[in-house]
């Protein structure tokens, strides 16, 4: 073997493990979700069944003057939240921008790398504003999940009720583990014992930190559950699935 100590070229590496599996899987996963969610949002029908409402359409805004699917009135919020999420940034910088494709794996050089210091990626700094909206959305989706326990004014549980409840729990675990929330809720404080409500802030920060350390896990679980919840309700609404009433 002969080589100098300098690495050159895209994908050049001495790594022997399957480093490309992770970025490939996340690239495909994000693309599949993007394709399904765009279709499900654009189609504008079959998003309700009984007391169920697809999360792609929640909160449901019915505005007659709006010529497109009502999903487009709200989807910018979760989309912006995920697109600027610190975890997804890592995932798509690696999978799509190949910057870097993997650790200790070569990439394109000499393209004037600016990271997140200039347009467009400097916009990632708005993440916390999407987070504020996303927290509101969790409460609205929680309300929708509670409504899914009511069938014609009576308490009832269907398979869809369980799916919607699990979905909101997973979305909550993702949202409440957000790095920006972790900062706002207490992370920016250095001395908890010298600030007002310090112990409360500390406990809140600890709680968010617990979820934050599993942020990647909840990012994927909630992405899958949101898609699946829409799919299930859609299939019920189209008459392809029969929603089983458990109670």
């Amino acid at each position: 073997m002969n080589s100098t100590a300098t690495q050159t070229g895209l994908f050049s590496t001495d790594r022997r493990d399957k480093w490309w599996v992770g970025p490939l899987a996340s690239g495909l996963g994000l693309a599949a979700f993007g394709a399904y969610s765009t279709w499900a949002a654009a189609i504008g029908v079959h998003y309700e069944f009984g007391p169920y409402l697809s999360p792609f359409y929640a909160p449901l805004i019915k505005w007659d003057a709006f010529p497109f699917s009502p999903a487009f009135l709200i989807l910018w919020a979760p989309l912006g939240f995920r697109a600027t999420c610190y975890y997804y940034r890592k995932a798509y910088y690696r999978a799509y921008f190949m910057d870097p494709p993997g650790c200790a794996v070569g990439e394109f050089r000499g393209h004037g790398y600016k990271g997140e210091t200039s347009f467009p990626f400097i916009i990632q700094n708005v993440h916390r504003f999407f987070m504020y909206v996303a927290v509101l959305f969790i409460f609205m989706l929680g309300y929708d999940a509670v409504k899914a326990f009511t069938w014609d004014g009576q308490f009832g549980i269907g398979v869809g009720t369980i799916i919607m409840t699990i979905n909101v729990l997973l979305l909550g675990s993702y949202t409440f583990g957000c790095h920006s929330l972790r900062h706002v809720i207490g992370g920016k404080t250095d001395c908890f014992s010298c600030t007002k409500f310090g112990p409360v802030k500390f406990q809140a920060w600890r709680g968010v930190s617990f979820l934050n350390s599993r942020h990647q896990l909840f990012a994927w679980c909630s992405l899958f559950s949101v898609g699946f919840t829409d799919f299930y309700i859609r299939m019920c609404s189209m008459g392809i699935f029969t929603d089983v009433r458990l109670l």
């Binding site: 940034r89 910088y93 690696r94 990271g115 997140e116 210091t117 908890f192």
Partner: peptide, 25 residues
């Protein structure tokens, strides 16, 4: 918790924290 120095601009400008794209290697 005891420190009083402000390093935020130094971290942004001299250490160039914005160049990190949080890819976690």
């Amino acid at each position: 918790p005891l420190d009083t120095e402000d390093r935020i601009d130094m971290i942004k400008d001299s250490l160039g924290s914005g160049l990190c794209n949080i890819t976690k290697c």
